[in-house]
Design a protein around this nucleic acid. Structure first.
Lengths: 356, 356
DNA sequence: TTGAAAGCGCTAACAC
DNA sequence: GTGTTAGCGCTTTCAA
């Protein structure tokens, strides 16, 4: 019986440890249940606890979560559904989720949907199959069909930034109307009268909100709403480029532009520079959403900055609240955003502002 | 016995479907195994297949992965360990991983370590417990202890960008020596003779590589290596600020700076602007690693750009290769990087370059 | 306080 | 081609 103790040949073929609780139990001379109890901090006779802890220390064993996951029919994982992680708007948001998730012993799976409804639907089904405990939906493409399996599986969802079409869920947003208003006020105060907007589809609630606020700001300033100056497309860099081009090619081009989304702003700036124009001398620019590093160099782009980290962490908190208390009333968390002024706004170029 | 069939009261309390394969089997009048076979495309009598598919369609059932995960002792998940998702260097990289992972039906868990070894060790243990199938290690803080549990569990690792201290693994890198050389050549060609470097700890293989290449470039240009101009610290924005300050406060400050890491570059630029200096008029700057949106605005920062998306996708591919063939020989994939010239390099300010 | 045993939902080995 | 059964590694009754 002298061999039973610690022989681990560790053959060169590798494939070493597939340790499990039974082995630890055997080493410690107790039952699986006792090992389980020690590991989950339940009451165990001190002597047995010692023996188990010793066996654990010697072997470096730690329990797999796969079995508990099966039992619980759910893994300790949150899914964060975004359109594209490459968009800096999402990075701090994910970080916020991950930090909160980690505190709770959860992990975060990131899903890029590129706003493709089919892809999103497929990935969400995968997540249900994988047994995620909650979903943060920050992809503006989210269709009703896509989230159906999540709802059926009774997995809580937090909608980020825009409300879900007709499903009810917890929501985290910022005040897009107020943000847009401040941005527009800056442009108006600087003397701009022809202000273009580049925005996403009005079916996305945030885009609708920003467009309305844009129009409201113009009306309040006693200006007409010129449909030529309103350019809507997808939320993408390519669309931003195209829509900006449309604006530049107008007979009477705008002296300022409000861009309602981050990728569109990048696209728009690209077009502006490609046309040899400069910001803010030739055209002023304000963006909804931050341009990260861009802030540091050159004039910098003024932007309505959303607290993306807080949005992520709030979303995760709402999720955990609902995981713990499924029947708690729906909540909508509205976080403040704020306009950060940089060098991208100036008065209209001389001559331009005096057009009819 | 008339109740046994399909009664689902669906009380308002929710908590609807917890469907499983047995229920489908029952509905279809076949056994679980047959359902399983249909769902995994194995041969089944057409009639039975129909019945199963019908039951599946009616119920919207799809199988959970939790049980297979337990059986396989592994979930179809890749862990991507980075220092901070907020650093744009990592975003496209994660995207690359995720795209490849998705093609294989896998998901990606993102772990931010902030280069904290203890945090990283804990998170990696969690990942082993969670049963991930592979790990992409792109955190420069990776300690030996941290990856030990991963190795013991026989989970493949791909080291990204820098080799693992003394463990062997597949590696994805770019040629830091060549990249640094091109960057330095630009500065030297522009006439700079006092070129500072801001870099991370030489214990990180990439940092060591870039520092050596910096020195080699100076030597090759017949210049002395001035220890005052070599500033090493952590890989962080704060360190970048501090180290740049050191450089600016030298009696004879450099006319150009090579920054070996992305966060440090941002910090350095901050310091430069805070001191009222401008790039490139007062000081030229080249960065190793891209500054995303920063590229679009103002002069733009010249940078050695790494193909981060490809790095991520290659890493994931190496992982899947090794998952399929655990004993395949180790591979090191070296991807090309390239210097992107923007407006951040100019000749040295008059007077500065003529110092002794 | 402890051990034995059932079971989470699926797959695969084995019999039919 | 199909059903039965065992079992993945835990946790959790239930008895003792």
């Amino acid at each position: 019986v002298s061999l039973q103790d610690d022989v681990k040949p560790d053959a060169p073929s590798g494939k070493a440890d597939a340790m499990n609780m039974s082995e630890i139990a055997e080493r410690a001379g107790v039952s699986k249940s006792t090992v389980s109890r020690v590991l989950s901090g339940n009451s165990v006779r001190p002597e047995n606890r010692e023996r188990v802890l010793k066996a654990v220390a010697e072997t470096g064993y730690f329990p797999s979560r796969l079995a508990p996951n099966l039992r619980a029919r759910s893994a300790r994982i949150l899914a964060v559904v975004i359109s594209d992680i490459t968009n800096p708007f999402f990075t701090a948001l994910i970080r916020g989720c991950e930090d909160v998730a980690r505190e709770e012993g959860y992990s975060v799976i990131v899903l890029n949907t590129d706003e493709l409804p089919e892809l999103e639907a497929q990935r969400l089904r995968d997540m249900v199959a994988e047994g995620v405990s909650g979903v943060v939906l920050a992809s503006s493409g989210s269709s009703q069909d896509a989230i159906e399996p999540v709802r059926r599986a009774n997995i809580p969802i937090v909608a980020l930034d825009r409300r879900l079409a007709n499903a009810r869920s917890d929501v985290v947003t910022t005040d897009g109307t107020a943000g847009t208003r401040s941005a527009m006020e800056q442009l108006l105060d600087a003397g701009h009268r022809r202000i273009g907007i580049i925005s996403g589809p009005p079916t996305v609630s945030t885009m609708e909100e920003r467009l309305s606020a844009y129009e409201a700001a113009l009306v309040q300033a006693g200006l007409d709403i010129d449909p030529d100056l309103i350019r809507l497309g997808e939320i993408s860099q390519a669309a931003g480029q195209r829509l900006m081009l449309d604006l530049l090619q107008l007979d009477e081009r705008p002296t300022a532009v409000f861009s309602a989304s981050n990728p569109a702003t990048i696209g728009a700036l690209t077009t502006i520079y490609e046309h040899g124009l400069s910001v803010p001398a030739d055209i002023s620019v304000v963006s909804f959403d931050e341009l990260t590093a861009g802030a540091l160099i050159g004039p910098g782009i003024s932007a309505v900055v959303q607290p993306t980290y807080a949005m992520g962490s709030e979303a995760a908190k709402l999720l955990f609240r609902r995981i713990r208390e499924p029947d708690t009333p729906l909540r909508e968390v509205v976080l403040p955003n704020n306009l950060v002024l940089r060098g991208s706004i100036d008065r209209p170029p001389v001559g331009a502002s005096s057009h009819p």
